[in-house]
Write a protein that binds this DNA or RNA. Sequence first.
DNA 1: CTATTATTCGGAGCGATGTTCCGTTTTGTC
DNA 2: GACAAAACGGAACATCGCTCCGAATAATAG
Lengths: 215, 215
Amino acid sequence: MPSDSHAGEAPARNKRADAVRNQQTLLAAAAEVFAVSGVDAPIRQIAAKAGVGMGTIYRHFPTRADLITAVYRHQIQACAEAGPSLLASAGSAFEALRQWIGLFVDFLVTKHGLADALQSDSSRFAVLHTYFLDRLEPVCAQILDAAIDAGDIRPGIQPYELMRGIGNLCIGRGSDPRYDPGRLIELLLQGLQQTQDSKEPGTPLSPKPGTQSCL
Amino acid sequence: MPSDSHAGEAPARNKRADAVRNQQTLLAAAAEVFAVSGVDAPIRQIAAKAGVGMGTIYRHFPTRADLITAVYRHQIQACAEAGPSLLASAGSAFEALRQWIGLFVDFLVTKHGLADALQSDSSRFAVLHTYFLDRLEPVCAQILDAAIDAGDIRPGIQPYELMRGIGNLCIGRGSDPRYDPGRLIELLLQGLQQTQDSKEPGTPLSPKPGTQSCL
DNA sequence: CTATTATTCGGAGCGATGTTCCGTTTTGTC
DNA sequence: GACAAAACGGAACATCGCTCCGAATAATAG
């Protein structure tokens, strides 16, 4: 395949010089603004910091998700590539899973509001969502499979669900010192770790059929 | 204490007739709009549906959180009151915890975007956050303590953290059929259920000190 | 019943933000 | 240097939260 459309990997020969220059400038400005004001910072602010008009931003990055994706592309890629190597280097598949999740969490948590944006209800960030998943879900699946094969964790968990859950748990970290996503994710891992012969899932979580309907 | 200021419990005698009428109308309209468009629906839309001006809405419910709180007050109260009775009726403290969490999840999940709003990054919804916690955290703490005393779950988990985590896991349900908060919460419960003598927490989740710093 | 007063109502208006659109400028090519 | 295509800039429009104050209305006094 040729180089991709937008996002800052390969400038692509057929673009005008000022275009690639502006794209670089925009990525740098966006990275800086994101670090300070979070990924929800006003577009105008990014445009101002880059010294370009707003039309320019929208031409290069039609949606905010495109811009976020481009800014963090390298980190996402690094996280994806860390998967197989962790699987090789860690003592066990479970340990690899734990460490990979650690990387993933660290990535989400150090970006202001990234986790929030990722799970944003509406489809404003569908592109971002898709990109994350395309890159990381296969990696997660591979580690998960290895851990299941090794008997480290119980089967049945889906990569998508796990990543999404972890992403959700990372939302809002920092708003209250009493909340530490790491502890809950650790708990989740413990639950995953149980062998299936111990306690089975039990009754479904939803309220008992006849209980009441006031909620 | 006298009847509370805003929110739809006791109309309070000293208010004008049209004021209490409008308050009722607003609560009904808001409930309807919330059910359709989520708790982030534009204020104007609620005002329009209620057939009042926006000034009226803001006088009765200074912040959006006040309105949300008022609309769901009964349900929150019911959830709070269900705690002790579950503790009495369920077979074990752990089962009570599971069922209470089931109620809590059911409540969050059936309200469009309520979970999202609850954990909203900024402090727009501080009041909502506070109200939820004031009512439900003690209940959660009580069940948790009972479960710990009974040896059903490992100690160390804080009620706030658990509720917050559950709330986070409920975010975005419905956007993708592959994501079911219930399964992950079940996993969390399993992790909580482990006795502390089995596998201890292990190395901290954060990446190993010397690993790398690219993320 | 009417006049007075205090409360409540309604919506125009302001500022912030996302997004589009088109006249102007810049760049690459001949 | 001239020309066309590509890119730029920012004005303009739409939406939304929130405030503010004259108008309307209910409670009360006479």
